[in-house]
Design a protein around this nucleic acid. Structure first.
Length: 343
RNA sequence: CCGCCCUUAGCUCAGACUGGUAGAGCAGUCGACUGUAGAUCGACUUGUCCCCCGUUCAAAUCGGGGAGGGCGGACCA
């Protein structure tokens, strides 16, 4: 694979790349450039995580070294979203769920290195550098960098600010050439690029954030706005059935976004097509190989939401299925990580 | 260490001065209308009023104590 093809593979289906030239240069100069993505093990993982995870299969295929950081300390620093005593259980659950998603997306999770925040964030080189950053960064600068990531309130704790600086530092600590994450992470990695010398500074790849099923942004606190990895076929069906999905409109349409960024890429990986079972009354069954064809039909009105929804639900369920099974086969993972929700 | 303020529905809050066992908006649920959902109408649900003790026929409301949260002052050797 040449540099151009590798770059294409690394940047396809993304929201933004900073910058493509830097990625190409990396591929030319380094044997195996190193990409990393971090997740703070807070709430249960959902389909939004899955879409960002699918990219890791592309990274692996493009010959990158890939590290997944399970940022356990971050999960507590961000407004104590995860209690300190549950960090280990949640990190364990996250790693297994992430492995499941990578494998389901056509990658091999054994090709990925897993690291926990506490593996290195308590060591001296890291903490010393962190203190330097703390001394060197204004509150407003740190706030701005983390404004899309860290929970905001009238009286924020210091944790959110330290969180931001730590994540900026993680890029260096993990010796990553490419920082990957949702577009909401942009501010933090831009701070990274600002704080450190050019030769340490990461190139960035940002994934799109999917719309929520109820319209607007996907929200962790709104169960109906997203599909969870452990939702069964019936629950997925109900959520898709209830989803905001105006006829002919592609903007802010979570159902279509799920199809574009998750279902079609994964089906493609599995060598499968997307089938819309449609009553003869409305024109009969449709089969799509590519998302673009489906979107064109949807825009034109040829494909009606009422026909699309059941098929989309079935396809989403099929994509999530291996992950769901893997998690439900190990019920103790979720039970230990979220004792309040699972008895 | 001292002082002041706050705690009521899932969320934001009203009600407290002038005791009569609780309200609004949003959210949610269900109908109507759409071949989905949303929007729009219509209906409905929701509570240890932070905890304990006391006063009273009666306490979210008054008094005392406690817990949690916020703000300020003092201390700055």
């Amino acid at each position: 694979m040449n540099t151009r093809d590798r770059t294409e593979l690394i940047t396809r289906h993304t929201e933004e790349t900073v910058t493509e030239a830097e990625i190409e240069q990396l591929l030319d100069e380094r044997e195996r450039p190193h990409a990393y993505i971090g997740y703070a093990p807070t709430g249960e993982m959902h389909i939004g995580h899955f879409t960002t995870m699918r990219k890791l299969a592309d990274f692996i295929a493009a010959g990158l070294e890939v590290t997944v950081l399970v940022a356990d300390l971050h999960a507590h620093l961000d407004d104590e979203k995860s209690p300190f005593e549950l960090l280990d259980a949640r990190a364990t659950y996250y790693e297994e769920a992430i492995r499941g998603m990578i494998d389901a997306a056509g990658g091999n999770s054994d090709d990925v290195t897993f690291v926990r925040g506490t593996d290195y964030q308590l060591e001296e080189p890291y903490t010393l550098e962190l203190y330097q950053l703390i001394a060197d960064t204004t509150i407003s600068r740190a706030k701005r960098a983390g404004s899309e990531v860290v929970r905001q309130s009238d009286n924020p704790n210091l944790g959110g600010l330290v969180y931001t600086l730590m994540q900026s530092l993680d890029v260096l600590a993990l010796d990553a050439d490419i920082a990957y994450g949702g577009i909401d992470q942009r501010g933090i990695y831009m701070l990274s690029r600002e704080l450190f010398d050019d030769d340490e500074t990461p190139a960035c790849v940002f994934a799109p954030l999917l719309s929520g099923l109820t319209g607007g942004k996907m929200s962790a606190s709104d169960a109906g706005s997203k599909v969870n990895l452990t939702d069964d076929a019936t629950e997925i069906d109900e959520k898709i059935q209830g989803a905001y999905c105006p006829q002919g409109e592609v903007e802010d349409n979570g159902v279509l976004e799920y199809l574009e960024y998750l279902v079609f890429p994964v089906l493609d990986e599995r060598g499968q097509q997307f089938t819309v079972e449609r009553p003869d009354e409305y024109g009969g069954t449709l089969v799509y190989e590519r998302y673009g064809e489906l979107e064109a039909d949807y825009r034109s009105g040829e494909l009606h939401p009422a026909d699309l929804k059941p098929s989309a639900a079935t396809a989403i369920s099929a994509v999530v299925d291996p992950v769901r099974e893997r998690l439900t086969d190990q019920p103790e993972l979720l039970a230990d990580a979220y004792p309040d929700r699972y008895e």
